[in-house]
Computed example of a mutant assay.
Amino acid sequence: MSQTIASDSCIHAQFSLTRQAKGREDFVLSVAAKLPSQGVTAIFGQSGSGKTTLLRCIAGLETAPQGYLSVQGDVWQDDRRTLPTYQRPIGYVFQESSLFEHLTAQANIDFALKRSEQRPNAAEYQQIIDLMGIEHVLQRYPAQLSGGERQRVAIARALLIKPRLLLMDEPLASLDSARKQEILPYLAKLRSSLDIPILYVSHSVDEIAQLADHVLVLEQGKVVAQGDISDIFARTDLAQLSGFDMGVVWHGHLQERNEAWHLARIKAPGGSLWVRDGGDAIGAAIRTRILARDVSIALSAGEDSSILNRLPVTISQITPDKDPAMLLLRLISGRDCILARLTKRSVEQLHLYEGLQAWAQIKSVAIMR
């Protein structure tokens, strides 16, 4: 592997391995990826696509003899040497919190810190405790904690060893819906508060839409797509992201609010959107998700509609949907993209075609917090 690759600031991961399976086809992982060394990179795919195997290779828990891994210029694995897991400055959060049941939350954290080469100072320690909101549970035992609290302690423990890379393997998979909603805001804070790259394995589109900056899509052990979340979610050719809940992610800023309507206006490159006012400060960065099923098409900018958000668009692509009665339309609005999921009958009756200028009517916009 060339020195040019090893000296830049990205994460380079190249692994090839074969795992034999009795009674079924062998699983083959063959991945070569260049990942950003900041923000959250989601490793996404269906069950069996190789997400966890890739993460374990990066952690050194899985052996890929021909592998290569460099993190921000430091080579952790090549054809000459492989750093063992305990020498890799990583934090690893599993599906289960894996706390010691006989130790308090505080003692669980302290146990990990005693074995860490880098100890946080008092200010760094308190920052993580506050970030995860666990000050009030530190003296409790794991059995006294909710599932969300246990995972927040586990994340704090992983962060307090001051890793250069945080690996998270479906950390919400074992939680029910209520606990997931409890912990998601804390995970979102990690992205905005800490300068550490996070690799986040998940098969949940909702989690990725809320948390990720960059997405790596795996299928049968191979990379089928990689890029900024806005670009990946705007694609209509990825079966992994298709379905009833497919949609795009827009990044904007809160520009104004109307207290009488309890609404706020989000300004994005593709246009302005009115959303429910969540109390964010003027100028705050806001991430929104627009589902294809919530977008309809009009041929004129009529004002006689209850739909608040109407944007001028150009139809750039019309493609088949999994449902034979439906079509997917890719719409360009400014520098952003919107997806619409319409019946074939509607497309035919409105005489919609690629290149046509029309109006997108957006029935609902979800703020991703």
Rank of each mutant, 00 (worst) to 15 (best):
Ser2Pro: 07
Cys10Pro: 04
Ala21Trp: 11
Arg24Gly: 02
Glu25Trp: 05
Leu29Trp: 05
Leu35Asp: 05
Gln38Lys: 15
Gly39Asn: 01
Thr41Arg: 00
Gly50Tyr: 04
Thr52Leu: 03
Ala64Lys: 01
Tyr68Gln: 13
Val75Asn: 02
Val75Thr: 10
Trp76Asn: 04
Arg88Glu: 01
Leu103Pro: 09
Gln106Trp: 08
Asn108Met: 03
Ala112Cys: 04
Pro120Ala: 13
Ala122Trp: 02
Ala122Met: 11
Leu131Lys: 01
Leu131Tyr: 02
Met132Lys: 03
Gln139Ile: 03
Gln139Cys: 10
Arg140Gly: 01
Leu145Glu: 04
Arg157Met: 04
Lys162His: 02
Leu172Ser: 05
Ser174Leu: 09
Lys180Phe: 07
Leu187Glu: 07
Tyr200Glu: 05
Ser204Tyr: 12
Ser204Ala: 10
Ser204Met: 11
Val205Cys: 05
Val205Lys: 14
Glu207Lys: 01
Gln210Tyr: 08
Gln210Glu: 10
Glu219Thr: 14
Val224Glu: 10
Asp231Thr: 11
Ile232Ala: 05
Phe233Leu: 13
Ala234Asp: 08
Asp237Gly: 12
Gly243Pro: 02
Phe244Asn: 15
Met246Gln: 15
Gly247Trp: 01
His253Tyr: 09
Ala260Tyr: 02
His262Tyr: 14
Lys267Ile: 09
Lys267Gln: 12
Ser272Cys: 15
Trp274Arg: 04
Arg276Lys: 12
Gly278Trp: 08
Asp280Glu: 13
Ile282Arg: 07
Gly283Trp: 04
Ala292Ser: 14
Asp294Pro: 11
Val295Arg: 01
Ile307Trp: 06
Pro312Trp: 04
Ile318Pro: 00
Asp321Asn: 15
Pro324Val: 06
Arg341Lys: 13
Arg341Ile: 03
Leu342Lys: 01
Leu342Met: 13
Leu342Tyr: 04
Arg345Tyr: 13
Leu350Asp: 08
Leu350Ser: 09
Gly355Leu: 08
Ile362Pro: 00
Ile367Gly: 05
Arg369Cys: 06
